[in-house]
Write a protein that binds this DNA or RNA. Structure first.
Ligand SMILES: [Mn+2]
Ligand SMILES: [Mn+2]
Ligand SMILES: [Mn+2]
Ligand SMILES: [Mn+2]
Lengths: 219, 219
DNA sequence: ATATTTTTTTAGATTAGTCTAAAATTTATT
DNA sequence: AATAAATTTTAGACTAATCTAAAAAAATAT
């Protein structure tokens, strides 16, 4: 069997792997698990024995197919529960991440299937992240980061790629909600910050850092 | 903070306390937690330090008010999740106990409140067990055990006080479902076993052991 | 090419929860 | 009341997950 803790490591290695095709470093895992590098080394050896990651000391780590499948199952559960919390229980999208961090470890395939059905087989979670199907296949939603959009283009906001309460509440404050129409007015060459128009109305100035974490759909 | 494991001990001590007004023995706790007496002793000392139980060595254990409140919160969560699984996800009542054993440890008051509301503030779970309110007060449902009912009396089945899959599937087989009408035809003096008529139709012979675990409402 | 810095691993300890085997205490039986 | 039996606790050990401090390896800078 796989423990709660092991599942968290797999999920975090998966997330880091999405951003690079190199092996993942011990330190970067330590940062996300909020543990020390020494603890990560121990866990990597254990996961490696279970054939969930391939790991050579000093060379970083990579998920095996088996490890990736398990990671995707956990992510599927996390995102389905987030949909449940928002669509059925009426939570705000900035309130659900922590609860889903617990719910994602509940162990029952039957439960996940029935939950999926109960929610109407959603394609993405309240933050716009795609939900893997029962076989771990991620639907391709084709969203882009707002930071990749050129001047004068008009897009619809579909999600975020950062879930911290801070960030989500900042977005709410300036009116960046799911489904709003965003026009890129101007991009500052120097720091890539941008001026945008939200809903054809208010004009706002946002940093590159913020834009990078906003998912949009082009027309 | 209180751990998953500690919560399970509290719940089990609560359950045992309902059947007696003596202190609870180390061995009886060990049996329900599926651990050894030595492990229970360790845990009782720990719970005692946290003021969740009162415990003197060799004298058995009893919940403090604080411990009882925590136990009731866990039981509330367990039963609400069981209602969710049956009423919303369409599980059978004999399939939900194990899953609820995991869900009951999810930590969020807000979640429990919203779930309660979403379910329409149910008074009892799919097995007929009362659901404590947010303050830990158990609704008084006034159900009796079928074993206490006299000959010729007619009652409605409202629940069970034993949740094992075995038992529930046996009930399903002979047609003892929630809401059925049961007439006590004859009680055997010797072993207290009884002959009953289910739904005005089929006549069945059931043991005292079974009757003791069936909750009924009189007219 | 060395030296310095950073990253990673090892060594040794700690805490929670569990176990077995032995000792202590309580309960039951003669 | 003394002995036997059952229950409970202690002692000592184990595993999972973590930590700090020191050692080893890799990356970077001179
Ligand atoms: Mn989340
Ligand atoms: Mn999400
Ligand atoms: Mn149950
Ligand atoms: Mn129940």
């Amino acid at each position: 069997m796989i423990s709660f803790t092991e599942e968290n490591y797999l999920k975090i290695i998966y997330k880091l792997s999405a951003e690079t095709d190199h092996e993942i470093s011990t330190n970067s895992v330590a940062e996300l698990t909020q543990t020390k590098a020494a603890s990560v080394t121990d866990m990597l050896r254990k996961l490696s024995e279970k054939q969930l990651v391939s790991y050579q000391k000093y060379q970083g780590v990579r998920l095996t197919e088996k490890g990736e499948n398990l990671a995707l199952i956990v992510i599927r559960k996390h995102r389905l529960w987030e949909v449940f919390l928002v669509n059925k229980l009426g939570f705000n999208w900035d309130e659900v991440h922590e609860i889903a961090e617990e719910l994602e470890h509940i162990n029952s395939e039957e439960l996940v299937q029935r939950l999926d059905e109960f929610l109407g087989f959603p394609q993405c979670d309240p933050h716009g992240d795609p939900i893997p199907d029962r076989n771990g296949r991620m639907p391709e939603l084709g969203y882009k980061n707002l930071s990749e959009i050129g001047e004068t283009q008009v897009v619809i906001m579909m999600g975020v790629s950062q879930h911290s309460t801070n960030f989500l509440q900042y977005l709410a404050k300036i009116g960046l909600n799911l489904g709003v129409i965003i026009e890129v007015i101007e991009i500052n060459d120097f720091d890539k910050s941008l001026t945008i128009k939200i809903g054809g109305d208010n004009q706002y100035f946002i940093s590159y850092e913020v834009a990078k974490n906003i998912l949009v759909k082009t027309f």
